[in-house]
Simulated assay, not measured.
Amino acid sequence: MSPTDPATAAALHTGGTVSGVRDRSGALCEVELLDGRSVMVKQNRAPGATRAEATGLEWLAASGTVRVPLLHGWDERWLVAERVVTGPPGRAAAVELGRSLARMHRAGAPAFGAPPPDGPVEAYIGQAPMRNNAQDSWPGWYAEQRVLPYLRTAVDDGTIRPQEAGTVERLCDRLPDLAGPAEPPARLHGDLWNGNVLWGADGHPYLIDPAAHGGHRETDLAMLHLFGCPQLPSVIQGYEEIAPLSEGWRTRIPLHQLFPLLVHAALFGRGYAEQALDAARSALAV
């Protein structure tokens, strides 16, 4: 049986004795242990969400390319990981992040949409369901598995008007022409906005809260551009030192941002719907 509170979960998965608990958000607590360790305890109520996150962290760590918090343990409700002490985002750490992301992407995946080993097909990106259904062609997979499901949700909820949906549907039809040079499936973090990058006080970047799957490497980088990332030019510099990006990648940023924007539209409403439609129009104008 899964623990019923974060303190019990921390004790179970670390083997330590809890000395204090501090709420960080509705689903996240910081737990202090008597031996001096500090851990983060995250609660996921959606079926399969903790498994998806835990196997994603393990898959990224298994590449030997990026730093993630040490995972002490997890069950169907709780995930317990080390607390990363954070500091300012310096240029050297940003270059390291870019190099690490390039190597992580190069570690690859069996197919587009492939889940991590032992990861669920029915996964999540944030609070939104995300299906990891593997396919060999990126344009078709991206349209069918990452764009159209969230467009349908947004239309059904009234967030995007039916007459507006045609813009996104036209983009999906043109994806084979707009996708740029073919790329092999990359090992993606999958939800790489700035809030999921921790700038460690030790001078190194750490990745948290993945929605990991096989995908196009430009999608992770487009996500960093979407909500802003400190020292982003240095991140890109470090990335291209290891794995130069294909010609025209900057013009394809709106194309790759369409997926997370539609997810946000489905979750949070009209403001993101308008941004998604703008991104679709920009991608079509290339």
Rank of each mutant, 00 (worst) to 15 (best):
A211W: 15
H264F: 11
A212L: 07
V84K: 00
A9Y: 06
Q257V: 06
P254Q: 08
D209H: 15
T251D: 11
D156Y: 02
I208R: 11
S246V: 00
I242S: 00
A92P: 01
A46M: 12
L258C: 07
D177V: 03
V286R: 15
A94Q: 07
R174A: 02
T219P: 01
G90E: 14
R270H: 09
E169V: 00
W74F: 10
L34D: 13
L267G: 01
Y272N: 12
A93T: 10
P230L: 02
P254D: 06
R161G: 00
L255A: 03
G180V: 11
P6K: 13
S19Y: 09
N194H: 14
R250F: 10
E122G: 11
D191G: 09
D156S: 04
H264E: 02
H216V: 08
L57D: 07
D220C: 02
I160K: 09
L261E: 03
A182C: 12
V121P: 09
Y142K: 02
G228I: 05
I208A: 07
V263W: 15
V39G: 04
H105E: 15
C29K: 08
V85G: 06
P176C: 09
R106K: 04
P110E: 15
A54C: 02
A92C: 02
P184N: 04
L284Q: 09
L261N: 13
P110H: 09
M104N: 11
H204Q: 12
